[in-house]
Simulated assay, not measured.
Amino acid sequence: MSDLNLLEQALDEVAAGKRIAYLGPEVSALSGGDWPATPERLCALIEAQVRAPRRATGNLWSVAQFVESRKFRATLNAIVNAAFDAASGNANPIHDWLAHIRPPMVVDTWYDDGLLQAFGGGNWGLVQGVSRNGEWIDLFTRSYDAAGTEVEAPDPAWETLIYKPHGLGKTGSSFLMSDSDYVEVLTEIDIQRPIPEEVQKRRTGLPFLFLGCRFDDQMLRTFARQIAKRSGTGHIAVMPGSLTRMEGRFLNEMNMKRLDMPLKTVKDALTISQT
């Protein structure tokens, strides 16, 4: 089977609820909005407002930690929220397709709300990672219905559960970004405690389709590995261009089939499937 046929089959499986879409920041970039669409661009935006030491430069999580430690969390929140409160831009073909097919679960790892806007109303809900900075309660996530009302836990009756493990960079919301945000999460994630039970149920037996992701950072690999834990086999990743050594090792470890093609190919495949 050719890579294009394999992609089309994987998209059909997502639509049928037999595979889970796992979205990286490059999917959000398809919207063409004003927000930073890569970790590098977000890091540069933060550094343009708060000068970070050379040892942290270029590393989003280290720069966020520096700002939080030296300028307080409120400064980091203000910078990130201002970036992602910006207009979302044009329609996003992958977001719109997912909103149309309403699969049982979508994992969205970037900080924008483009996918939520595409879904609009209906029987779906959001689970997002939250920072414990300033919190005294034992929580890793918060849950919301389609109207944005906080609920105690994800509803098994939701047609779609949108899982944003790193949170949401919007005013009034919360996100994980600094090293200290991730300390307790990474301590507990191997035993799955930060991952909601409903997410664990919905991933059972299903492989993932990774779109717009890179795995060139340990943090990104750890989250992908743990979110996909105890799921199905036969993961597929659309990842164009050269891989780093660690990306190659990670794909081998996950027994993940890599499709060396740009996201435009995914967009074109969706157009074909909808005609």
Rank of each mutant, 00 (worst) to 15 (best):
P53W: 03
G89F: 05
R73I: 15
A146W: 13
G248S: 11
V151A: 07
R51H: 06
I227D: 05
S273R: 15
D112C: 13
H235T: 07
V107K: 14
P25R: 02
H166K: 06
M256R: 08
D217E: 12
F250G: 11
V130Y: 15
V238Y: 02
R245M: 08
M105Y: 06
W61K: 03
M256V: 08
Y182K: 00
Q49V: 11
A64T: 04
T233Q: 10
V183T: 12
G134T: 02
A16W: 12
I46L: 15
R19C: 15
S88H: 07
I137D: 12
A21V: 10
L23Y: 07
D179V: 06
Q274F: 00
D138C: 08
K71M: 14
E184K: 15
T265A: 09
S143N: 12
F72W: 07
V67L: 12
S173D: 03
T222E: 11
L76S: 04
P262D: 10
A146L: 03
T141I: 00
K267G: 13
T204N: 08
M177W: 09
M246A: 12
Y111K: 00
L220T: 09
V185Q: 03
G17C: 05
D12T: 08
L60A: 00
T109I: 04
A91L: 10
I189C: 09
G167S: 04
P240H: 13
H100P: 05
L42N: 01
V151H: 03
L7V: 05
R102Y: 02
D12K: 11
D12P: 04
A269I: 05
A37V: 00
R249N: 14
S178W: 03
L126E: 11
W136D: 12
A224S: 14
Y163A: 03
D155H: 10
A48L: 06
L270P: 08
L42H: 03
D268A: 05
C213F: 06
D155I: 06
N77W: 09
H100V: 02
N81M: 08
D268Y: 10
A99T: 06
A16Q: 14
I227H: 07
A44F: 01
A10D: 09
F215Y: 14
L270Y: 08
Q128L: 15
I272W: 10
L220G: 13
H235N: 15
L243D: 00
R102M: 08
S273H: 10
F175Y: 10
T171G: 04
N77R: 13
G122W: 06
F175T: 04
E197Y: 13
L7S: 09
S231L: 07
D113M: 05
M1E: 11
R249Y: 12
E253L: 14
A153M: 08
T271K: 14
L23T: 00
C213A: 04
L186K: 14
S28D: 00
L42R: 01
Q192N: 11
L176N: 09
D260I: 01
F66D: 09
K170M: 08
Q200F: 06
A15K: 03
D216T: 01
I189V: 14
D217S: 12
L30P: 15
H235E: 06
A48F: 03
L243K: 02
F208H: 06
R102D: 03
